[in-house]
Design a protein around this nucleic acid. Structure first.
Lengths: 222, 222, 222, 222
DNA sequence: GATGAATGAGCATTCATTCAT
DNA sequence: AATGAATGAATGCTCATTCAT
């Protein structure tokens, strides 16, 4: 594993460096508005070098997604090792996700735009796409596993189909995080100014809600 | 209201027609890939006419958002008139939203992309932006009102700050709808193939979850 | 025919003007080295205007071919109307061709490069290609007709297949003209410096040769 | 001649190998579309090595021309040694040329494109250019000699200037061969589909024509 | 008002050539 | 000598926007 030649190590470092720069620029301007010229300039390499490491602009984006999903999976996989009730696992996965997107907003946005990129012919069926799909499946599996564990140990109602429940949780989390990020943007919807909240309070609110609901049971029993 | 001259009425009709056409094209191709040429052709007007009614391409997009949010608000406002417990109001608002996005996926996507457009200088602080903001605030208010009513009539736990709860619900709903739409796209993430679900089942799952939670109370009390 | 609107006439004039300019530049630099930028500049129009009138760079080239073959055909068609022996018709067609390429070297080169262009996907099966093919077939037909007339009136030996003979004559003429043009170029093969000849003497030599041959009959009868 | 060091012999072998590969690629794709990368890959050498042996891409092309003209000259020179009438020599040279281009279409195309390359500054007045010019002059001389012999032995009419006649024959041959090759190309002019012919029949038709002409003498004497 | 021809800034991508190793 | 990573000038093409009619 460590036996990479100096050449090889430098090649990877350069590639990572390009991704680092591209991440920032794409986060700032969005994928469409980011230009290869700017990425090359900021990365202090020639424009041609970009194409030496990535087949196309889309391939760079895909590289970002791959790196991000890989990092997220590493963190999520650790949670599953803990010996706690499934419901707690779900909450911890939520916390992990919260932590991750807080530290890496770039990847959050990259994941959101991922699909748009898939239309590009230059990357269709590329290995990177396959790796991204695999990562996404892996991430989903972590949630499903936690839910299954919870249903087995009784900490989670087993009235749901675990995979569907996972998609709901996953989608709801992304939506709520998106709301939180919208507030931070330069040009955000002004309505969000009126409420005082942040990413952490929002996600914790969601976790609580998904856990016990907002319905008042005593009332609802009437 | 009815006192518009024929000229004025025709002008508005033309503008609405352009929006009709633009909606379809942008839904099909996405905002960046849609061209003014195509919009003009399909709308059977000259390219210059587009600029007679809209300041820029972004302004057309904004026009779509404005119309969409206005339509959604009309539907949501009716729900609040019903004399039912707040929790039921929230669920009904959820249903209304589900119905709306099912019938108008265009607007759902328009809202999601709305922010991206805000960077455009040609529309900054335009009247349309203000009207969009107002609509968004109005939509949010409907949810907040329903929550407040529910907290007052006891159907909803009053341990949340209504505005923050509204944002969580709103965000979660958008996220879940997004998941459902992703499945339909030509180039969707393949992971979604493994699970069988649709927009309706997903949203109802979310509503249920937000209502009573997934936590098993008996178990959790142990 | 003459009932074109002013707009229409201007459109055609502009298109012809672009072709005029493109002809000169392509003759000078060759197709590959000529740039759309240069054509636009020299034609005093914007780069986009080029694409308003021609689908692609190749389409411009094709436009040149079409115009050239059309002009050549007009001149060749007139020859066939004359009431002279077929052999004389062939010689007159040769003279006509000589005259044409002398006045329009651009078109001669355009025809030579024509095939190379056909690979371009943007023009495949375009109407212009069809018109060019039609023109080429027409030109070939003029030669074949003259040969057939000559074979019938006895002025030409009828030991050849007319169509194959036509291709030989056509090919030989192009080859000889090419030789003549090579001498004129800035960077021509220096061997041609040693001989004193010009386009006219060369083509007339070829016509003579094709007519009576270089073989000495008395000697060859031995 | 044999006194080359091993190093020197290897150097030449490597250079020839590069030319072998370049020939095939350029025949396939054309000079402009062939890339140094592809040549290097197929030749199994580094891109830099190409520049060790050839000053530039154009220099490679020139190398092909040089080798081709050298090979052709070797074959043509042998013909002149035969003790036959000049007219037969000319016919035999024609046959030799026909044979050569049939076996080496690469060189035929290389010669045709030769001139275009001469504009390149990197090769202007290079030694290779000089050798190419010398080869061309040599080839021409073979034809001129055959014609002179024929005029002296009475087999060829001595009404022509031998050098000019040579250029006509040379040019006509190239033109006719070109026609034959055009028919084979993927994207050839469709008009050629209508006639059934091949390289051999075409060239033999030309040789016959240049020999005895197509004019019917009896008729023309009336 | 309506039009659409003209514009040209802007972009992704290619590829011959160089040069440090 | 051999290499191939790095380069960046060059290019064809797009499309939002303008403006003369």
């Amino acid at each position: 594993m460590q036996k990479l030649s100096r050449k090889e190590r430098e090649r990877i470092a350069r590639k990572e460096h390009i991704l680092d720069v591209a991440e920032l620029i794409i986060l700032e301007r969005g994928f469409e508005s980011a230009t290869m010229e700017e990425i090359a300039d900021k990365a202090e390499v020639g424009k041609g070098t970009l194409y030496l490491h990535f087949k196309s602009k889309s391939a760079i984006y895909l590289g970002i997604c791959e790196r991000g999903s890989s990092l997220l999976n590493i963190e999520m996989s650790k949670v599953l090792l803990e010996e706690v009730p499934g419901m707690i696992l779900v909450e911890k996965i939520g916390d992990t996700y919260l932590n991750f997107v807080q530290r890496n907003p770039v990847y959050f946005h990259a994941f959101n735009y991922y699909e748009t990129i898939l239309n590009d012919d230059t990357i269709a069926n590329s290995e990177t796409v396959l790796r991204c799909e695999k990562s996404a499946k892996e991430a989903m599996t972590y949630i499903v596993r936690a839910l299954q564990i919870g249903m087995q140990d009784g900490s989670i109602k087993n009235i749901f189909e675990p995979r569907e429940l996972a998609i709901i949780i996953w989608g709801a989390s992304k939506g709520v995080v998106n709301m939180a990020f919208m507030k931070q943007k330069r040009n955000h919807i002004k309505i969000l100014d009126d409420v005082d909240f942040n990413l952490k309070s929002l996600i914790h609110g969601l976790i609580h809600l998904l856990g016990t609901g907002m319905k008042n049971d005593h009332q609802s029993n009437n």
